[in-house]
Design a binder for these strands. Structure first.
Lengths: 206, 206
DNA sequence: TAGATTGTTAATCGATTAACAATC
DNA sequence: TAGATTGTTAATCGATTAACAATC
């Protein structure tokens, strides 16, 4: 599907936004859209939108623009969102439960199918359809590609090591700690404290 | 404190990470550090670290490097983290409570001092030291600079409008919706779904 | 002093954007 | 066809990095 040319992370990062905008347009009954209009909504230039798409092929009709339905289908495919993706959640605290119940995940075809924790008080408890399991029993043949770490900073590296052992492919890390993992493992850090600090910086200057 | 030259957001975004690394070094008793070593930990080039600092003045001693203590102090000042910053939280669901209890905020001198929600079942409930208040009673003279939106997508824009009326300066937005706000208001979006989708992309290619 | 490391300049790299031929 | 809009190239812009004089 993809061309050989290297696709920057910045480009990839914009696709979920494009997809969201297109879904909203579809909701409103829009059938066709120009790069001009969608880029305006995404706060990027039209040429950037077209360039981003161009890494993955041709999507539109000169003169008329893009079919919303068709473009959604293509972007869903690029992001591999057409089939359901399972994720394992480690950490059943406030943050973990918030993520488990986060409606956006379901809408995008992600599902947290197993939850692990180390607190005896939590292990065995049912939440929604699934039961919180003992982290010590994390199986080696987990067969789930995505891991979400929502444990305190101190435990994060240990959990990451366990997930790597369980042959996870990617980790979404909320612990606020830089994880050390093999290069094949993709890690994305969401650092809530940093986000607030950056916001604060821009609020304090001026 | 700052020079006239425009400082890119990418530069600012790296400072919290530098600060965290320095704090960890201080914990371990390190007194002096070279750009070489700190950059290595931050996964950037030494020259990038030095350039980032250079926007804010001179911090080190040629030949010996940087005083960890002194550099922490300077970065804390750059990020305006020396005094306590209050934040108002809107949304007392799982995510809101997770943020309220997030230990990182306190460590960095942020404190959520008021929580608002619209659910009668939640209003009036005590959590920690504070009581969840009715969002309809959000005062116009709130006098809190930072707002955190942790409400469902549908409610987000309404809440943003209310916060703007209450003279908030910046918003950390977890709703997954692009907010429309006056240009003077700084908004940072943390979109959990996008993060998972981007992670998934990199897990699925290869 | 000699060695080390800074702060800053200039070169490089990569990402964004304008422009336009191709095409519906 | 004429008007509109694409996909892509080439120009521009901005961020990263290497290199080095200054300096501790």
């Amino acid at each position: 599907m993809r061309k050989k040319e290297k696709i920057s992370e910045k480009t990839i990062t914009r696709f979920p936004l494009y997809l969201q905008i297109l879904k909203d347009l579809q909701q409103k009954g829009t059938q066709t859209i120009s790069s001009q209009l969608i880029a305006h909504q995404a706060l990027v230039k039209a040429s950037q939108f077209r360039k981003d798409l161009s890494y993955f092929g041709e999507f539109g009709k000169p003169g008329s623009g893009y079919s919303v339905e068709h473009l959604i289908e293509r972007i869903v495919n690029i992001l591999s969102l057409s089939c359901r993706h399972q994720a394992v959640l480690v950490g059943a605290g406030n943050l973990g439960m918030a993520l488990y119940n986060f409606p956006g995940f379901k809408e995008w075809n992600f599902e947290i199918t197993r939850i692990f924790d180390n607190a005896p008080a939590k292990i065995g408890k049912k939440t929604g359809k699934i039961t919180i399991e003992n982290i010590d029993k994390l199986p080696l043949d987990l067969k789930i590609p995505l891991g979400i770490i929502a444990v305190p900073a101190l435990a994060a590296q240990t959990i990451a090591d366990l997930l790597v052992q369980s042959k996870i492919k990617g980790i979404l890390n909320f612990s606020g700690v830089k994880l050390s993992t093999p290069p094949a493992i993709m890690v994305r850090n969401v650092d809530l404290t940093y986000e607030l600090a950056i916001l604060n910086y821009y609020c304090c200057i001026d």
